[in-house]
Every structure is written in C-alpha cells, then in structure tokens.
Amino acid sequence: MNNMNITDIVNPANLVYKKNSVLNDLPMHYCPGCSHGVVHKLLGDIIEELNIQEQTIGVAPVGCAVFAYKYLDIDWQQAAHGRAPALATAIKRLLPDRYVFTYQGDGDLAAIGTAETLHACNRGENIVIIYINNGIYGMTGGQMAPTTLLGMKSTTSPKGRMYERDGNPLDMPKLLAELDGVCYVTRQAVHTVGAVKKCRRAIKKAFEYSALNKGTSIVEVVSTCNSGWKMTPDFANRWMVENMFSKYPLGDIKDTIQA
C-alpha cells in the first residue's frame, strides 16, 4: 500500500514529538523507569511552551532530585534538606518577576521540611511546589517516610507500616489545601500517557497561577520508586494504581482561581 521507507518518514518535516530544548543532553542518574525523568521532561516542556526559560528559577531539594540542576537548562539554587520553600520565598521576594518553583520529594517536603512548607504556604508565597510522592526515602535505600502506606514494606518497616507504632500516612496536599494562602492544589501521576498529559496541564496551570500573585500552587505527583519498592518499572506502576491511589486519589483538591 505504501512505498515509503523509514528514511522518508524520519526527517524534520514530519516531526511530531522530540525532547524539549530546556532539557539538556546529559543522561539522567535516575534508575530505569523512574518517574523523576518524566516530571523533568514535563517541566522542560512547559518552560519551553511558556517561553520563560530566562525567567525561571528552580530550587533543587535533597533527595534523588538533588542533581535536578544538571538536567534542566534554567537557573537553579540548591536548598538545605527540606528548606526549599524558604529559599524559594527569598528568591521570589527579591526577584518578583521570576517564575520560582521548588522540586521536592516526600522525604524533603513531608518530613524534614514540613514547617518550611506549611509556613511558606500559609504566607501565600507566589511559588510553585512540585511534590514527588513515592512513599519512601528512595535515595537512601527505601526507608519508611511519613507518606509510606499502612502495611507497606520498607527497609525500616520490614513487616509493613503499623498504625500503632508508626502512625498514619501523611497527606500533605490535603493539609495544605486548608490554608488560605494556597490557590491551587492538585494531585497527578505519570504512569500512563493520559496521566502524563493531565500532569503537564496541571503543572502549566500552576506556573500560570504563580504569575498572578494569588498564592502558592502545589502539584503533587504520585510516583513510583521501583528500586526502593524492589519491583520492575511496569509492576511498580501497577502496584501504585492498586495501592497508592486509594490513599492518594488523583484530581484537583483546590482551585480558587477557576472555581
């Protein structure tokens, strides 16, 4: 039916999807199948789409994403563990015309940085918080985090998390949505094509809201840590759908601007 060969198809005129120009060519240090890579790619897509590469400042956390500054070609600051929202506050107040975002994991935002996160959100700083929640401390070998699900095994809870001993999993976005300083809270995932597209729209919205000076925008991305969970990338995605989504259901939690 067709007489085209691959060399006819593979030429720049027929391009439908390519890596964005904000993401540089360095191979990422993340494990195969890690959700961090997808979220980095989405951030690059949005920064390129909004044409704000020169006006964007990211704040890198401590955790697996500690080297985020190596992969996205924008200005970055490296914060002390958990202190990214405090540092982002300073950057945004000194340079109010910039788009400032923090990129934090659950150990960073929900454990050591709880106070900084809560107070930055309570003050209604006009920053974007990207919150990667995979339920464990991935970088240090899969220890139990505040977000670990009840019954979920980790290296420090080998028989599963127990309520009597370890308390309940902490749902930070729901907590932060109660604060008046927060204008947009959403929970997304990046396990399927549809979810990736929804997540891209959510992060774009958060960046647009941060320019309106109406308060803090928070995008939680429920992620997998296939190394820490000791699963294959595919199985980790299915495990996340079966177990994580009942505690962390996807969707918008708060949107005061469009509501």
């Binding site: 439908v16 990422m28 959700s35 890579g37 094509v193």
Partner: peptide, 13 residues
C-alpha cells in the same frame, strides 16, 4: 510521552 529519559523522537506522515 512516557519515556523517563526523553530518548524517543517521533515522526509521522
């Protein structure tokens, strides 16, 4: 879309 390494480029005619 799902590639974490952004290593796939797609062409279509």
């Amino acid at each position: 879309e799902v590639c974490p390494e952004a290593s796939i480029t797609v062409y279509r005619v």
